[in-house]
Each structure stands twice: as C-alpha cells, then as structure tokens.
Write a protein that binds this DNA or RNA. Sequence first.
DNA 1: AAACCACCCAACCGCCTGCGT
DNA 2: CACGCAGGCGGTTGGGTGGTT
Length: 243
Amino acid sequence: MVRAPCCDKMGLKKGPWTHEEDQILISYIQKHGHENWRALPKQAGLLRCGKSCRLRWINYLRPDIKRGSFSLEEEETIIQLHEMLGNRWSAIAAKLPGRTDNEIKNVWHTHLKKRLKQYQTKPDNTKKNLKSKTKIKSEPSTTSHSESDEVPSSSSEVVSSIIDGSDHREDNNMDTWECLVEIDESFWSDALSSDESQVPSLSTDNIMEPNYTFGENLDDSMEFWYDLFIKAGGSEQGFITQF
DNA sequence: AAACCACCCAACCGCCTGCGT
DNA sequence: CACGCAGGCGGTTGGGTGGTT
C-alpha cells in the first residue's frame, strides 16, 4: 500500500519551537489534553504537524520533565539497562522518571557509548567478529573469579569505573568475565512485565555457544543467568520455575 | 578577534505496530 | 483479511555553542 505522508507539510512550520508556540501548546494541553495529536495543532492554532507537537510536549514541555545533566546514578542505570535491553530507549526511559527516551538516547550516543567503547577496546580484540542482538557484559561470579583482586566484584563497581573513567581492565584478562550472548526478545519483555504469573522464556538454546566464555561450570552459568533474570525484573520463584 | 573544530541536543524522518473499519 | 490512520519508536541530522588555535 502507499503510505500517506506522516503529516501534510504544506504550510506547516518546521524547526525550533518559539516561546509563543510552546505557550500555545502548553495552554491547549492543559485545557483539553492531547487525545488526538493529529487534530491538536489545528484546534490549538499551531502551524505544526501533530507529530511535531507530540515530540515537543513529550521531550520538552511536559511538566514532569527533569532538566539538567544526568547524575552518576542515572548514568549507571542507563548503562545497566542498556546492557539488558539494548537500544530500547523508551523502555529505559520508563525506568528513569523525568527523563525522556530522546534525552537518554542523546546521552548514550554522546557520552556513555564512547566510554564503553574505550573501555571495551583491547589490543587483541577477539570479539570484533562477534554479533549479537544483545550485548551483555556479565557480572563476574565471586566464586569463579575470587582468585583475582583485579576483577571487580560487582556490576555496579564495573559500571562506576566505566563512568568515572578509572577502569583499566583492558590490561587484565577480560575474557574470563566477559561474554556475549544472544537472547530471545521475549525474555526481556516477559521479565520486565509486571505480571508475576509470566515467566520469562529463558532458553540455553539461545546462547551463542562459541562466544559463551563465561563460567567454567554449570553453577557459574546459572549464577550468571539468575543475576540477569533478577536484574530484568524477574522473580526468584520465576527463575526456579523456569529452570 | 576571527576562523576552525568538535560536541551537544532538539527536532525531523521513516518505519513499525495496534486498532478501527 | 485488507486497508488506512494515528501513535510510538529508534536512527539520524544539522544548527547552535563552546573550546582551541
């Protein structure tokens, strides 16, 4: 089928919003809400398309928007959620009150991605040929890696060191604690579901075997999956049931 | 002071999905 | 079932801004 243009651009304004336009949009939404974005600009007297209005409201004018730079905790949360969810910015934004998907996306591309890239770069980059739907840096097992003081003991420690740039683990043997896995999309959506009765569809079939370097025995692997499961919002009972 | 450069972020674009008909 | 519309999402862009030479 032939798709109609997202909006009729004839005579509609584009580009940065003026203060006046903002005021019109705010007062209209305060009075009438925003049940129909397409009709809204016409009714409000704005020469914008509905999409543009929606974006402006969602990303900038909404009263509950938190302005200003991201805190360390927020950055840490973004990194952790990105590990779990990938580029699902709206899902990540849902876990950060007052932050928009657009804002998080920007922060990721301008700050966090670079830091992670730096962090993940190592002279002998054996992972460059690996492909994955979801890249996950596993939390090191305290049992399997306790022999090395150089290996951080928790994911938050890892993430903090990435954020503050103090991490220098490329000097160490990252292969012992890093792995890349492929996970069924439904795993995350199920795990994040508020419905307790839903059990995330974990399957070891989804593990990309050649890349699966984490854990030297089954217990370590289970610990890894358990941790991811809980991080993704799954319950302990759900994990037990699944396995 | 001017030119250049790099970075940031608001906004746009196109695709996807859900829903009503 | 097919179609069309509206909303939502992620990727990308380009103007603005601040830093450097």
